[in-house]
């Protein structure tokens, strides 16, 4: 198991380096000069050059990448062009907010998705199954920013029960005001993962129940509950990996939903960085998100290896 863990960690290194290179290049390939936003309109060619040199943008791309990577490893992602504040601090603040939102959304999505999926898989082809499938397809195909707007119109504008914007004042705390801010965005964000998890679990549970060994379990005299335990254990590895991937998406924050709710997370930060052509901020945010995704995948793989004996560990 330890060997497996070390080997998996080792594999992460090239992936992380590749990810960082792509993050860096992608932003440079995009059109538009990052400095036009902050430079005076009448700046001379000389002044432009000086500015370029100040941000290190005059050097060749590979050199820029190496310098950027060297600093990034030490936790320095440069300074935001728009605000002048260190990128690392901005990203960490945003990641915290997105994490809280992702956590809240998974708390809604995973139990509900698993429950609905199990129900549908167990009562395959019954009206329950059809109802769950309909809900799941609706969840996956509804544009969630639209749902967010509709929820705001109902619960904030018409009924006035919940706040429509922001994450509440000050740092995040698990108190009433902050929770009231998170309810609507968390529900909105949970709809797609509910659909995906429910559909996956339905297919998985239905498939496992139709396997020969389930009949063999009944044949040896086990009760319904015992058989359910076996089914859960068989469904766990795949279910876990689907939820891991969903969690990865949630952690990335949703640009659309965070924009609709003005939620100060990574999605919100990204959209600001894009509109302001804030190159260092954009690179830093994408890098942190990508590494997060790699980390989540690693965790899921390791967890899967622990619960599924068929995965070779050595």
């Amino acid at each position: 198991m330890l060997v497996y863990l070390l080997r998996r960690l080792l594999y992460v290194c090239p992936v992380a380096i590749g990810v960082s290179a792509i993050c860096f290049m992608l932003v440079h390939v995009a059109p538009g000069d990052p400095l036009t936003a902050i430079m005076a309109v009448d700046a001379t060619a000389q002044e432009q050059e000086a500015m370029r040199a100040a941000y290190g943008l005059d050097k060749p791309l590979p050199t820029q990448y190496v310098i950027w990577l060297g600093k990034a490893v030490q936790g320095d992602l440069g300074k935001s062009i728009a605000s002048g504040r260190p990128v690392a601090g901005e990203v960490i603040g945003a990641v915290q907010n997105s994490l809280v939102l992702a956590f809240a959304a998974s708390l809604i999505a995973f139990p509900l998705g698993i429950f609905l999926g199990f129900l549908a898989g167990y009562f395959r082809d019954s009206w329950i199954d059809r109802a769950v499938t309909t809900v799941a397809i609706a969840g996956v195909s509804l544009p969630n920013y639209w749902l967010g707007i509709v929820l705001v119109i109902i619960f904030s504008v018409t009924l006035g029960w919940l706040p429509a914007m922001g994450a509440g004042d000050g740092a995040w705390m698990w108190d009433f005001t902050h929770l009231s801010h998170i309810i609507l965005p968390a529900i909105t964000l949970s709809v797609v993962p509910i659909g995906i998890v429910a559909r996956t679990m339905r297919a998985l549970v239905g498939e496992i129940y139709s396997m020969d060994f389930v009949q063999a379990l009944y044949a040896k005299g086990l009760h319904r509950g015992d058989v359910l335990r076996h089914v859960v254990r068989n469904a766990a590895p795949t279910g876990l990996s689907v939820m891991g991937i969903q969690l990865g998406y949630l952690l990335g924050g949703s640009i659309l939903i965070e924009t609709v709710f003005n939620w100060p997370g990574t999605g919100f930060l990204l959209s600001n960085a894009i509109f302001q052509r804030d190159l260092p901020l954009l690179q830093g945010t994408i890098l942190v998100l990508a590494l997060f995704f790699v980390l989540v995948n690693l965790t899921v793989d390791v967890a899967q290896a622990i619960i599924d004996p068929r995965i070779k560990r050595s």
Binding site: M211, D212, F213, Q215, A216, L217, A219, K220, G221, H230, R233, N234, P237, I307, D308, P309, R310
Partner: peptide, 16 residues
């Protein structure tokens, strides 16, 4: 009790 045709399918793969 019963012995099945295909033991690879009749035993639960994730239990010892």
């Amino acid at each position: 009790s019963m012995v099945f045709q295909e033991p690879a399918l009749a035993l639960d793969p994730v239990y010892t």
